[in-house]
Nucleic acid binder design. Sequence first.
DNA 1: ATGAAAGCGCTAACAT
DNA 2: ATGTTAGCGCTTTCAT
Lengths: 330, 330
Amino acid sequence: MADIREVAKRANVSPSTVSRVLGGTTRVVEEKRARVLAAIDELDYRPNVSAQSLKGIRTRTIGLVIPNVRNLVLPAAIRGVEDVARNHGYAVVLCNTDEDSEKEQFYIKTLKSRLIDGFLFTTAKINSHNIKDLQAEGFPVMLLLRELDEQSHAVVLDHYNGAYQATNYLLSRGLKKIGLVNGSLDIKLYDERYAGYRSALKEAGLKVPDEAVVHGIDGGIEAYRAATRILLNRVDIDAFFATSDDKALGVMRAIKDLGLSIPGDISVIGFDNADIALLLDPPLTTVAQPLYEMGAAACQQLIEMIEAKQPVTPQIQRFPAEVVIRNSVK
Amino acid sequence: MADIREVAKRANVSPSTVSRVLGGTTRVVEEKRARVLAAIDELDYRPNVSAQSLKGIRTRTIGLVIPNVRNLVLPAAIRGVEDVARNHGYAVVLCNTDEDSEKEQFYIKTLKSRLIDGFLFTTAKINSHNIKDLQAEGFPVMLLLRELDEQSHAVVLDHYNGAYQATNYLLSRGLKKIGLVNGSLDIKLYDERYAGYRSALKEAGLKVPDEAVVHGIDGGIEAYRAATRILLNRVDIDAFFATSDDKALGVMRAIKDLGLSIPGDISVIGFDNADIALLLDPPLTTVAQPLYEMGAAACQQLIEMIEAKQPVTPQIQRFPAEVVIRNSVK
DNA sequence: ATGAAAGCGCTAACAT
DNA sequence: ATGTTAGCGCTTTCAT
C-alpha cells in the first residue's frame, strides 16, 4: 500500500501536511487539503497503524476477554460490543479464557505488547488481580456483566430487582411454593438474585422452602440433577425459578422426564432471555437482560475512556431487568 | 513497559544482541544469551509488536470475518479458530458483517491498515470480489464452512454425503415419505445437501415428494411457516429433513402446534448438531458438522500459510459428516 | 559473535 | 500555514 510520502508527492505537499489533513488537528489551506484528499483517494491510502502507534497514537483496538463464546448469553453481548466498536472505527480482539487465570494472563501479555487501547472483561469469577494490575498501569478497563468494586467501571444488570420481579410474577400467578435452582453464591450476581427471591417471598409473608432451594449449580446438567432430586423427594412445589436459562433448560427436562407437564403441573421461569428461550417447548418465561445493549454501552464507555484526556471517574451502570412473559408459567 | 535498550543495558550487551536472542536466527554465545533471557524475565519485557511490524515482521494477528456471532453454529467454529490461534501466539480480531458487503469492505480496510497477517472468512454468501482482491494482494486467505473455487483454500463439510446419510438413516427406520425443508439453492451447501437427499431417495427407488419439498428457507420462522403449510395441505409425510438445526427447530414447533407428536406422528432430522440440539424436546437427531475441529483446522492451515516462505498450493479440506442419533426420529 | 548505525512509516516540535 | 527534522522500538545490514 502507498505510504504518506507518495501521497505527499502526488499532492505536491510535504508529508507533514498530509499527516495534518488526516489528523484534523491543525488547519491546512483548503486547496492543498483538497489535493491531499484526492491523492489519498486515488492511491487508496490508509495510514499504517503500527507506525502511528509507535508515535503513541491510539491503535483503535480493544481486547474483549470472555470465558467462552460458546455460551447462551455472550454472543448477544459480544455483538453489542462489536457494533459500537465498528461504528467508532475500532476493531475487537476476542479472547476466550475459560475463566483460566493462565490463559487470561497470556492474553493480557499479548494484548499489551500489541498496544491495545483498552480492555473489556466479561469473566464471571473474580480474578481481580489481573484487572487491578491493568488499571494500575493506566489501561482503560471496563467490566461487562460483572462488577468488581467501586473503583472499576462496569455495566451490569440489576440482578436483585430482576429476581425480585421474577418471584413476584410467579406469586401473582398464584404460585406460592417456589423452588430455586441457583448458581454459586460466591458469584456476586447469584447472591443478588437469591436476595431478590428472598425479599419477594418475605414481602408476601412466605418463607423460603429450603428443601427446594439449591445453590452452586453450574449448567443445564447439574440443574437437571438438582431438579430431579427435589422432585423425587416429593417436595411440594408448584414452580421453579432457575437463575439462568441454561439451568431452566435442565429443570424443564427434569420435569418432563418425570412425566409432569409445564406449566400444567409445574411452572418454570428462567433468567437471561437467551436467544433460544423462545424456541423452547414451551417457550420460556424469563427475566430479560438487555445483553446487546449492555455490550454496546460497555464498549461505548470504554471508548470514551480511551479518548478522554484525563481519567474518567469510575461508574457502574446498572441496567433494569424485565420479565418476558411466554408460556412456561401458568 | 521496558524496551529493548533497557534489557540490553541490564544484560550488558547491545540491543542487537537482545534482538538476536529473541529472534533465534543467529547464534549468541550461551553466557550472554542467559543474561539476556534473565533480563527479559526480570523486566517482564515483551517486544513491541508495532515496532516489529514496521520492520516487516508478522503481527501474529488474524482477522476472522463472520456474518454474525449470534448464531447457532458459529461460536463452536470460532472457538476452534481461537484455540489454535492462541496456541501459536496469535490473536484474532472478530468481524461481524451480516453478509453486508459494505461492512465487509470496512473491515478489510481497517484490518489491512493494521497489518494483519491473514484472513479467515466464514460468510455464506458468495462475495468473491473482496476475497479475490485480498488474494491478489498476496494476503493469506482461508475459507471456513464455505468454499469459493479451486484457487482458494477452504475447510468445508462433505454436505452431499451428510444429507445422503441423513436420508438413508430415515429410510432405514422405515420412513419413506420424507419432506425437505431446505435453504436457498443459490448457496452451494444447500444445493449439495439437496443432491445428497435426492441420491438417497433415488437409490431406494423412491421419488422426491415435490409437494413436501421447499427451498429458500432462511431461519426457524420461515421453516415454521413452510412446515405448517405442508402439513395443513395434508401432504402425506412421515418425516422432515430440515437442512439446518434452526430450521429443524421451526419444523418441530410447527408439528407440535398442529397437535402432532415427534417422533410418534412425524420424525425430524436436522443438520449441524448445534450445541442446543441435544437440549430440545425431543433431543434432535441431526447430522453433525465437526464445527470446532473445522475451525481449528482452518486456523491451523492459515497459520501455516502465513509462516510458509512461499505460497502454499490451494487445498480444500472436506470433513466427513456424521449422523448423531437422538430421539426425534422414530 | 557482536556492536554501531540505518531505517521501517508516521507525528510533532521546531523553524520559517 | 507549511516544510524540515528527530525519533517512536525494533531488526538487520555492515563493519569489526
